[in-house]
């Protein structure tokens, strides 16, 4: 638990990424390309049409070890957050999960233990299906609800429903990692350990993704719902 810096718009964008390499994920989800030179976070955001307060809220939330759940003063753009989350969904489903699956398949090709490979891939497929369902629910219900609220249109959805069904989707991924580390005797090789590492970072990434939903999006929607009433 090391102390992390809280960033402001005047800090250098390159500095942010160099000091926190996992911010690369955040940048691509906001659609911000590399090559910042000495520009500040605020300058880079403006050049790319990204709302700076929202960008900083996501960045600082991800950098806090324990979420302090302090909402930045109400000038966040809900639509910027939903777009960010939508891009993250695409990233996980279209890019990250398929790569991990492929790497699992390659890493677990020990002919004597083909049985393990079968059940692990089955586990992973079930897991992807579950996450897909979860994300599809948000795309179908939560994001349109935000758009409706912003346009002053009434709908029957309430964000409190979502808070209840929001599962800890990263914990099942960690379950797989833990089982392999603790009980798969004799598993070895660069590829195997590398894919374990991938699973670990992917679960972390998912945890941060859920944090943005829980700590930024849900309270914002609660606020909008209150105003609409």
């Amino acid at each position: 638990m090391t102390a992390k810096k809280t960033y402001s718009g005047k800090d250098s964008m390159a500095g942010l990424v160099l000091e926190n390499i996992n911010m690369l994920f955040v940048l691509s989800r906001f659609g911000i390309p590399m090559g910042f030179g000495e520009s500040t976070i605020d300058e880079v955001c403006r050049q790319n049409g990204v709302d700076t307060p929202t960008f900083l809220a996501v960045v600082n939330l991800n950098l806090q070890d324990g979420p302090s759940r302090s909402l930045p003063n109400g000038n966040l753009k809900p639509e910027a957050i939903t777009e960010y989350l939508h891009n993250a969904h695409e990233y996980f489903l279209q890019y990250r999960f398929p790569i991990i699956k492929e790497r699992l398949r390659e890493a677990m090709n020990d002919k004597d233990r083909a049985d393990v490979s079968v059940v692990v891939l089955r586990f992973f497929d079930e897991y992807i299906a579950e996450v897909k369902k979860h994300m599809a629910y948000e795309e179908k219900n939560v994001f349109p609800h935000v758009r409706n609220l912003l346009q002053g249109k009434a709908d029957n959805y309430q964000i409190s429903v979502f808070s209840k069904r929001h599962d800890q989707i990263e914990s099942r991924l960690n379950e797989l990692r833990d089982i392999l580390i603790k009980y798969y005797k004799g598993a070895t090789g660069h590829a195997f350990n590398a894919v374990l590492f991938d699973i670990f970072t992917c679960a972390e990434d998912l945890r941060e993704h859920n944090e943005v939903e829980d700590a930024l999006l849900v309270p914002l929607i609660e606020q909008l719902e209150k105003q609409a009433r």
Binding site: V116, V119, F123, R172, I179, L180, K185
Partner: peptide, 10 residues
């Protein structure tokens, strides 16, 4: 599914 992986791996 996790229990299955455990049972096969061990």
């Amino acid at each position: 599914a996790g229990l299955t992986v455990y049972a096969i791996a061990s």
